[in-house]
Design a protein around this nucleic acid. Structure first.
Lengths: 185, 185
DNA sequence: GGCACCTACTCAACTAATTGACTATGAGGT
DNA sequence: ACCTCATAGTCAATTAGTTGAGTAGGTGCC
């Protein structure tokens, strides 16, 4: 149900193809609503059938043809109604590393997995930084906030950044606990 | 696939019924691998068929009968192998609020949703605090870490706590941005 | 005396998500 | 000449997850 609105929300930024959307869901939207290309194509099909988006074919010369999707007024209205009411389902996090850590017996293996996670988190932060720069486009945060119509994209980006930063802090904490335990044991 | 190992990991704490497991997946495990009772019963069935857990019926007098599950040596071994290798799939977060925020036009409605989220996060932190107290059982963290065989449960609990704390910090940030924008606009 | 809630599940139907393979074309490198 | 990567998708099969109802005895509250 929510994927529907995630797609509609993504289309608020303007007309997009399924392929372009799959890129968006691979970077910025991935932090709060991951989706594979297959999910997106199916969802777009449904949305078009329900009249919430409009599709048009675009013939291309040096690339495969594509379909571009736009929000309809009905889609905009549906999204508006969704955004106004409180979330139905609680935030859900799925993290395999935590299962492994929960079960872990070997502290050395745990340390290795946690350090891998840290490297990964730093990579993600770098990518967010680039998304942020593109959003701000040379302006300061203040300028951006006063000029730009919609703040949503910025706030969700901040959440992604804050999540990864916390991830790093927690990893540090885990390493400290493992060291302490090694010293005590 | 990972639910399987989440269940096995939960059974590391000792024999449990499906019902008891569903309680565990409602509190501590909920932070990194949510599962409904129905999922658990199905998974336990499968695990028993595969010989990774052993089930025994327990007749009860004043309550419905139940089945208690224990890890077998094969289950323990399978879990060990899983825990040693790096995660296959990245962490995934699903958060409806962020879709709503991404789409949001009305700052006042946004503020209300964010404050609701804050109340909720504080409630969750309280519950974690109680879980933590039960784990530590009067000991300091140092004592716990030197006495207890397995650190996993403590580290995953820390992640839950850290996630909600960060949630609160991000909410504060969002409120600040909304205020700033209101002042600028 | 009735009603809601807790324990302890089972069953059926449904929707969502994942995986892998397949179709095309073009660009760039070695 | 071949290989990989990027664009832009489609199809089919399977697994995972959700929802709602049903069963059945016990406890606690007003």
């Amino acid at each position: 149900m929510s994927l529907k609105y995630a797609v509609l929300a993504a289309l608020l930024e303007g007309e997009a193809s399924g392929y372009e959307l799959s890129k968006v869901f691979d970077v910025s939207f991935a932090n709060f609503w991951p989706a594979t290309p297959q999910q997106l194509y199916r969802e777009l099909e449904r949305l078009a059938q329900d009249g919430l988006v409009e599709a048009r074919f675009v013939q291309q010369e040096r690339r495969p043809n594509k379909r571009m999707f736009t929000l309809t007024e009905a889609g905009r209205e549906d999204l508006r109604a969704f955004a106004a009411e409180p979330p139905r389902r609680p935030t859900s996090v799925r993290d395999e590393l935590l299962i492994k850590l929960q079960a872990m017996e070997d502290p050395e293996a745990a340390r290795a997995l946690v350090e891998e996670r840290m490297t990964w988190a730093r990579g993600k932060l770098d990518r967010y930084e680039r998304v942020r720069d593109r959003l701000l486009d040379g302006r300061t945060e203040e300028e951006y906030l006063s000029e730009s119509g919609r703040v949503g994209p910025y706030l969700t980006l901040l959440r992604g950044i804050s999540f990864e930063e916390e991830n790093l802090r927690w990893c540090e904490r885990v390493l400290a606990v493992l060291r302490q335990r090694a010293a005590l044991g």
